[in-house]
């Protein structure tokens, strides 16, 4: 196990990623975007609020807004970080040599994934001081913070796995990136749109039930994030669909499944299939 986590490929990935100026720029951009939103929120709420102080309700509100912005940033950055993992090496003509080393396909794919995720985690950790404002004014429990970060992590891993998979299957990074963003936009926006439309449709027909809103909502990281703060939305979806199984659990199962599948395909397709010919007898 040790060789899988502390291996030369991961070492190289992390070295190259954290050494590049682009990598540094990414962190700055991330913190800047998040900081701007937090600052904007504080200014607006103290300007229009009765008192010039920050109350727990506002603090919680700010936490919600920050969480959504952070989710947007994660969804925005993950495809960019992963969709060139393999195709980028292929385009730079370093892949062939890497594949002739005895490093296993599992090691190479997992290392690519872990390095991208650790970079994203670094950004999230770097953003933690911003959250300290929230804790200062109360209204948010540590468990809420932890569960929110778990949702981030699960979403991140799934999208990153998809990105690595597309970059393994598709030769050109540009196309792989477009496809990964496409899938991400569908998961984040498309499913929300479908859930809302279908939900509206059934809202007025008291007696008919449909599992469709449930099925689309469980793919949507924003719904899941929201349901972590306010339960009325999930309650409504679960009531509409007549499914008792918690939406959050379905989300976790489906995203873990997506990750496992995407990683599996990547590992299989990295090198040519060699068992094609069987010796007879």
């Amino acid at each position: 196990m040790k060789s899988l986590w502390i291996n030369p490929v991961l070492n190289k990935e992390i070295k190259l990623r954290f050494r590049s100026f682009k990598g540094f720029l990414g962190v700055i951009f991330y913190l800047f975007a998040l900081g701007l939103v937090a600052l904007g929120f504080i200014i607006v709420s103290t300007m229009y609020g009765q008192a010039a102080i920050f109350r727990p309700e506002e603090s919680r509100m700010m936490f919600t807004v920050l969480s959504f912005v952070q989710m947007v940033l994660i969804l925005f950055m993950t495809p960019g970080l992963t969709s060139g993992a393999i195709s980028g090496e292929r385009e730079r003509q370093t892949l062939n040599i890497l594949l002739t080393t005895p490093q296993s396909s599992v090691t190479i794919i997992i290392s690519k994934l872990v390095s991208s995720i650790s970079y994203l985690l670094l950004m999230m950790i770097a953003s933690l001081p911003l959250y300290s404002i929230v804790f200062l004014f109360g209204g948010v429990s540590p468990s809420l913070l932890i569960s929110t970060f778990c949702i981030y992590l699960i979403t991140m891993i799934a999208i990153a796995s998809l990105g690595v998979m597309f970059s393994t299957l598709i030769r050109k990074t540009i196309i792989s990136t477009i496809v990964t963003y496409g899938v991400t936009v569908f998961l984040a926006g498309g499913t929300a749109f479908l859930t809302t439309i279908i939900g509206q449709l059934f809202m007025y027909q008291q007696y008919s039930q449909s599992i469709v809103p449930y099925l689309t909502a469980m793919f949507n990281p924003f719904f899941i994030l929201l349901s972590n703060f306010e339960s009325y939305l999930t309650d409504e979806i679960q009531r509409l669909s007549g499914i008792d199984f918690p939406l959050m659990a379905s989300f976790i199962i489906i995203y873990v499944l997506i990750s496992v599948l995407a990683i599996g395909i990547s590992i299989k397709k990295l090198r040519p299939r060699m068992k094609a010919q069987k010796r007879i007898g």
């Binding site: 030369p8 070295k15 050494r19 730079r92 003509q93 062939n96 490093q103």
Partner: peptide
Amino acid sequence: PDFFGVYDQFKTVEYLDFYGAS
């Protein structure tokens, strides 16, 4: 290979070191 690329952020020694480790 006939055509190959290098990891441009690596120094010569690091480049060889990476493959050696691999």
